[in-house]
């Protein structure tokens, strides 16, 4: 590192010392460096601006096209054939049920695994393998998880069900909660644990009553992020809970969900359905973004 510093032009701003002729060289070099610096700065500024423009464009489109369709009927009517003033209430409720249950099932497992990694297996081979696998699952294509749950919970039982949908979402939740739990628990200073042990607390009590409480913010962040992530997932639900055009809270039957309904409606030829798709998109996105803002800004994890 220092070698490159020493030989870089920066180390010898005036050029190798040697006289008046070098001043014009120095000036040209200086100007060139200043110019490339300015170009780089402008390009980076533009890049950031482009990213922000995309964000604004997407949110703006959603707002513009989705807001038009918002009305009481969206929240009081179930999905209906085109031209019958249908709404989205069964999709919304179905999404809520499946998301909540998926998180309820996935979080304890994720918590336990994160605890295992942070408290019992920071360096062991099993721990490293589990950590690795969890990281891979975190970014694995969600459609494959849907395929897997189809093979295991749909095909053998001869039916799409809300249960299968919940299972697929739970599988997606687990690695998210694992990652945040492990990170948060690792940040807890050793002194806290030592104090607990010094007072005679068994290890598991130290973890549950002291560490969890200290990391509560971070763990809650992880749960909120997990909710936000699975609330918008479509692919895993396509082959598991399929969708239901009627009002249904029966977990053993196909269950409606907002992302799948949007997927079906957006690809349909009917204007009112496409409008509802935009409304649904608006609802999901702003819900998800609200959760993210709460998680990242309000519940800011101690770092």
């Amino acid at each position: 590192m220092s070698a490159s510093l020493a030989s870089s032009p920066a180390a010898h701003p005036g050029g190798i010392p040697g006289g008046a002729r070098d001043h014009s060289v120095a000036e040209r070099l200086s100007r060139r460096r200043a110019r490339s610096n300015m170009i780089a700065k402008v390009l980076c500024f533009i890049a950031t601006a482009i990213a922000l423009v995309f964000l604004t464009a997407i949110l703006g489109t959603l707002f513009w096209l989705g807001f038009k369709g918002i009305g009481l009927h969206v929240f009081t009517n179930v999905t209906r054939p085109p031209g019958s003033e249908g709404g989205l209430i069964n999709a919304i409720v179905g999404s809520l049920i499946q998301t909540v249950l998926g998180v309820v099932i996935g979080t304890p497992i994720g918590l336990l695994v994160g605890t295992y990694l942070a408290e019992y297996a920071r360096t062991s081979t099993l721990g490293n393998t589990v950590r690795f696998v969890s990281d891979v699952l975190l970014s694995a294509p969600s459609i494959l998880i849907g395929l897997f749950v189809y093979q295991v919970l749909v095909a053998p039982f001869g039916g799409f069900s809300g249960i299968a949908g919940v299972a697929a979402l739970a599988v997606i939740v687990i690695p998210i909660v694992v990652r945040t739990t492990e990170d948060m628990l690792q940040l807890i200073p050793a002194s806290l644990r030592e104090a607990a042990v010094a007072l005679g607390a068994p290890k598991w009590k130290a973890i549950v009553q002291i560490c969890y409480r200290a990391a509560l913010n971070g763990i809650a962040t992880g749960i909120l992020l997990a909710i936000a992530r699975v609330a918008g997932e479509t692919a895993p639900l396509l082959f598991t809970s399929l969708g239901n055009l009627n009002w249904s809270v029966d977990m053993t039957a196909p269950m409606s969900s907002l992302p799948v309904t949007i997927y079906q409606y957006a690809g349909s030829p009917f204007d009112d359905w496409v409008q509802l798709a935009w409304v649904g998109a608006l609802l999901i996105t702003f819900g998800v973004l609200a959760l993210n803002i709460i998680a990242r800004v309000v519940l800011r994890p101690r770092s």
Partner: peptide
């Protein structure tokens, strides 16, 4: 057939008491 099945089901739900969930 989705549009016609949907409309038929809507009209028939009161007289027949049957609710159709049709996935197109």
């Amino acid at each position: 057939a989705a549009p016609i099945y949907g409309k038929w089901a809507e009209a028939a739900s009161a007289p027949t008491g049957i609710k159709l969930n049709y996935q197109s």
